[in-house]
Design a binder for these strands. Sequence first.
DNA 1: CCAAAAGTGTTACGACTACACCCATGA
DNA 2: TCATGGGTGTAGTCGTAACACTTTTGG
Lengths: 227, 227
Amino acid sequence: MASRHLRVTVTADLVILTIRSGELHVLLVERANEPFRGSAALPGGFMRGSESLDETAARELVEETGVDPGALHLEQVGVYSAPDRDPRDPRVITCAYLAIAPDLPVPTAGGDARAARWVPVEDAVGLAFDHDEILRDAVEQARDKLQHTTVATAFCGPEFTIGELREVYQAVWGIALDKPNFHRKVTDADGFIEPTGGKRSSGNGRPAALYRAGKAESLVPPMSRPR
Amino acid sequence: MASRHLRVTVTADLVILTIRSGELHVLLVERANEPFRGSAALPGGFMRGSESLDETAARELVEETGVDPGALHLEQVGVYSAPDRDPRDPRVITCAYLAIAPDLPVPTAGGDARAARWVPVEDAVGLAFDHDEILRDAVEQARDKLQHTTVATAFCGPEFTIGELREVYQAVWGIALDKPNFHRKVTDADGFIEPTGGKRSSGNGRPAALYRAGKAESLVPPMSRPR
DNA sequence: CCAAAAGTGTTACGACTACACCCATGA
DNA sequence: TCATGGGTGTAGTCGTAACACTTTTGG
C-alpha cells in the first residue's frame, strides 16, 4: 500500500534569529558537501525514523546552538517542495522552522564540523537551495509574531530591561520606536512582562528595572507596527 | 546519498471551508479503505513525482470540488508528522492546506468515488487520523486571516453584497457584527471591495449594492474581532 | 401603510502619537 | 553639574462601539 506511492526524503531547516549589537542576525553554516559545497546555507538535517519533524528541528537546534531546547522559541514556517529545489535529488522536501534565541556566546559549539556564524539578515543573500526565500518568509513571520504575541522576550535572556526589549522590536522591524510609549505599552499589557524587583545599570544613566517574561502568549491589543 | 536517509510518503490534506445557510461548513469524505475505513476524514491525496506539495493540494482541490483552482483561495496550514499518526505506516506525514470556497452546487462532482459532503465545523469531530487537530488549526488560521486579510471575499461568489460579506464574518467568527459599522469599515478599507454598479434585491427590503473583490490582500487597519 | 434590509449620522470612549518633562545615576 | 538613559504626564488624533435615524424596496 504505502510502497505504491512516491517516497521522499524530508529535512528540517532552521532559521535561527538573534539580536547582536542592535541588528537582527541569522545563523548560517558553510556547506561541507555537494550540492552547493562551500555556499552559506541554513542549518538543518534529515528526519529520522522515530521522530516527528518538530523533534527533528528541536534536535538540530540543540546541535547547532548547544542550548536547552525548552528555553528557545521554535515554530513551523512552512514546507518547501518544488521538484527542482535540490539539483541532485528532485525528491527532497524541507520544512522550515523559525527559532528565536537570545544572544548566544558561541554558535560553533555544535557537534557538527560545519563552520557556523551569525550574519546580519540583510547580508544573508545568495544562500544555497531555496534558502533565500525561506529566510525571507521566516523573517516576515517573526515580524508578524512580534506584533501579536509575546515572543519578543525569547530574544532576551531570563532577565531583561524594557530598553533591551525595545531594541528587539527596533532590530526586527528596522525602525525606531518612541521610548515613553513603548514603556507604557509593555508594562500595561497583561502578562507580557513581570518585574523581578532587580535593577541593572548600563553604566550611563539611571538604572533600569529588570523584568522576566510573563505568562501570556498573545498580545491584546497588539504592538502596532508603523506602516 | 539520498538513499542513506529515511524516505517517507507525503500527503496533502485539505480543509475546504464554505458558508452554507449562515454556518461554517467543511468538506468531509468517507474513507473507502483502511485504516479508518468508513470514518469521516478530510479529503487529501498522495504527492506525485513531478509536482510540488502545493500542486498536489491544488490538484486534489479540483478533484474534490470540480472548480477552477485559480478561483479558490489555497494556503498551507502546517505539517503533521507524529510517528504514530498513521497506525499502519509510521512514515506517512501530511501537509494540511486551508481552502476557502464559495457555496458550491454539489461537492460530489469529483472524479473520486468517495462520498463527499458538507458538514458544519462544530459537528465535524471524531475524524480519522489527526484530522480533528488539523481542522481546529485550519479554522483558527481562517479566523485570523479574516482579521488581517481580504480572504473573506473568497467565501463569496464573483459578485456579492455587503450583507453577504458580513454573514461570512459572522459565520466564521460565530458572533454578530453591527451592520452600520461593518458597512463603513469595508467600504472605507482601501482595495477591499469595489462596487460593480449593480444591485440585488433579496425579496425583502431595500436592494443592496453589489461589489466584487478588490485588489488589496492585506487589511489595514484590520477587522477587529471582539474578545 | 408596514415590514425589512440597506445605508448614514452622531456621540462617547479607548488606544495611539508626539513631545514636554522629571528621575536617578556615573563621570 | 552635565550627559545619559529610565520613566511619567498630557493633549490631540484616529479608529471603534453603540445606537438613533433615514432610505428603498416588496407586499
